[in-house]
Amino acid sequence: MALGTNYAEVNFKNELKSSGTNSNSPADPRENTIPHQSNFGFSKLLLALLLILFLLKEILLSVSFITFFQKNSQLLKEKNYGNSTKEMIHTNLECVKINSTMKGKVWSCCPKNWKSFSSSCYFISSKQRSWKKSQENCSTMEAHLVVINSKEEQDFITWNLNKSHAYFVGLSDPEGQRHWQWIDQTPYNENTMFWHVGEPNRVQERCVVLNYREQWGWNDIFCAHVQRSICEMMKIYL
């Protein structure tokens, strides 16, 4: 109690002096040092509180992220439980902090081992399947065969491909009438297509691969042929 009283008195005396009131009591040599020490201690306390608040915020973000991941990971595992022939579903997310206008969204995420570009994530499968089986495999991972909307997107994708292989994309001609359709119903744009010279060349070849012939381009092939493939999904925002 004595320490508390002295502190109150010191503050009170300083206030009197600052207001111009005279005091006949002898000067206490501690008057000039104790306020400085108190202010310094208060600054340290404030800094510590701010640090604690920052750490609590980061912990809450981490907990939210872990909870979200666990729920989605469990859902995907249950959906594909017992099917050992399918490519393993992603069990981890890789996220980067973003400046987002979406309320409450600060993280942009793709499954681990997927490639990130613009608002999409891409998975390059090394397993060979038919076009239909490739699409089914993408679907088990909440994705679809890749839909290419720009040269920039195609350049990014092909940068990560092996020139010795061909890769199914989500473009096909289901009726064999040369009416090309993207798997996600994106309109086929004749101003954004990358066919090799002379392609497409056979009505019976109703599915499309990306392959390399001096440069990367599209080639129509039989849908039953087995090739590698590329899956695409929208990024996850947390």
Rank of each mutant, 00 (worst) to 15 (best):
L51E: 09
F68G: 03
D28N: 13
M234Q: 15
N11M: 10
G104R: 09
K77W: 10
I221Q: 02
V197I: 14
T67R: 03
A166L: 01
K151I: 04
F65C: 01
S100Y: 13
E87T: 15
E142I: 01
S172C: 02
K17P: 03
N39K: 15
L55H: 11
D173L: 00
K13P: 00
L49S: 13
Q204A: 07
T91M: 09
N92Y: 12
A166M: 04
A8P: 02
L60V: 11
G4N: 07
V208N: 01
E87D: 14
T21S: 06
W180Y: 01
K115W: 04
S84H: 04
P26Q: 12
N6H: 11
N137P: 02
P200M: 14
T186C: 03
I34K: 06
Q185P: 05
D155K: 10
L49M: 14
G104Q: 12
L46D: 15
P29K: 13
R228E: 05
S125T: 04
E152S: 14
I52A: 10
Q204R: 07
P29V: 13
M233F: 07
S134E: 10
S23V: 14
V147I: 15
Q37S: 10
S25K: 08
W114V: 02
E9W: 02
P187M: 08
S119R: 12
K115N: 06
P187N: 08
A8F: 05
R30F: 10
R30S: 08
S126V: 08
N162V: 12
S25G: 04
S139F: 01
E153D: 14
E205R: 05
N99Q: 12
E153N: 13
G20L: 02
R202Y: 05
Y122H: 02
Y188W: 14
N149R: 11
T67L: 03
F54G: 14
H165A: 02
I230P: 03
C207Q: 01
L171E: 01
L61M: 05
N113Q: 03
K71E: 11
R213M: 08
S116R: 05
D28M: 05
M234R: 11
K86M: 09
N11I: 11
K163S: 02
M141Q: 11
S130Q: 03
V209H: 01
V209A: 00
I183A: 01
T5C: 09
S130A: 06
E78R: 07
Q135A: 00
S139C: 00
Q177G: 03
K127V: 13
P111W: 06
S100P: 07
S150H: 00
N92K: 11
S23L: 15
Q154N: 11
A27T: 15
G104Y: 14
L60I: 15
G217N: 06
H144F: 03
A48H: 08
S150C: 10
A27C: 12
N160S: 04
H196K: 07
W114H: 00
C223H: 04
R178L: 08
L171I: 04
S139P: 00
S23F: 13
H144W: 08
V203L: 15
P174C: 10
P174S: 10
R202S: 08
W216T: 04
W195S: 06
S84C: 02
N92G: 06
